[in-house]
């Protein structure tokens, strides 16, 4: 473990908590893409299949359970409890356009052709594009609540910090994983225009408005 990866995990945990708090305290999931949340739940499910078979550390197991529980709790809040506030009309991204290519690529480019490894690779490719429905929804509505932009900033920062972690691990222990690293770069690049808007607008107290 290094401070970059710990920082990344904490940013990820913060994002998940911000989202749950936003939905719970405002009793509304307006502006949140349920489709992205479905992709995140799918990502954690495919990635943590070895939760009970491959013990790494208490921290690792606890975080996996927290991520899985939070992902499914968010789906419950969005599609059951506060279903009436879910904005179907603006959350229209076709999930099959993301799931099928990620699954196909995972069967072709992976570290090892085994169930666990292919599912892990699928989760890596899927996570890279999982935020697209959310970013698409923000571009369609043209704006986002500030709490939602804090959520996106924390979520985007998590994988950016993981990239720093991979660079650090390459130079400190010669470790590298081209699949996770390249997918992580794609994932982080998708946030770039949002990061720009967040830093130039939201941090100055303005609302996040996308140029129409």
């Amino acid at each position: 473990m290094n401070i970059f990866r710990l920082g990344g995990d904490l940013a990820h945990l913060l994002a998940i908590i911000i989202l749950l708090l936003k939905i719970w305290t405002t009793r509304s999931c307006a502006g949140i893409s349920g489709k992205s949340q479905i992709l995140f739940a799918l990502t954690f499910t495919a990635r943590y299949l070895d939760l009970f078979t491959n013990f790494v550390s208490v921290y690792n197991s606890v975080m996996k359970v927290v991520y899985l529980a939070a992902a499914y709790a968010t789906l419950y809040l969005m599609y059951v409890k506060f279903k009436a506030t879910y904005d179907h009309n603006h959350d229209t991204f076709r999930l099959e356009f993301l799931i099928l290519p990620a699954a196909g690529l995972a069967l072709i480019i992976n570290h090892e052709f085994s169930i666990i490894e292919v599912m892990w690779t699928f989760s890596i490719y899927l996570e890279a594009v999982a935020i697209l429905p959310q970013l698409f929804m923000v571009s369609k509505t043209g704006e986002a609540e500030s709490i939602t932009s804090h959520y996106l900033f924390a979520l985007g920062s998590y994988r950016a910090l993981y990239i720093v972690n991979w660079v650090y691990r390459y130079y400190s222990e010669g470790f590298y994983d081209m699949i996770a690293t390249l997918a992580g770069v794609v994932q982080t690049v998708l946030y770039c225009d949002f990061f720009y808007l967040y830093i130039t607008k939201v941090l100055k107290g303005k609302k996040l408005q996308l140029p129409a």
């Binding site: 990820h12 570290h111 470790f175 994983d177 081209m178 699949i179």
Partner: peptide, 10 residues
């Protein structure tokens, strides 16, 4: 050449 998966990462 693709390296290998980090089993300790989330």
């Amino acid at each position: 050449e693709l390296g290998f998966r980090a089993k300790d990462e989330l």
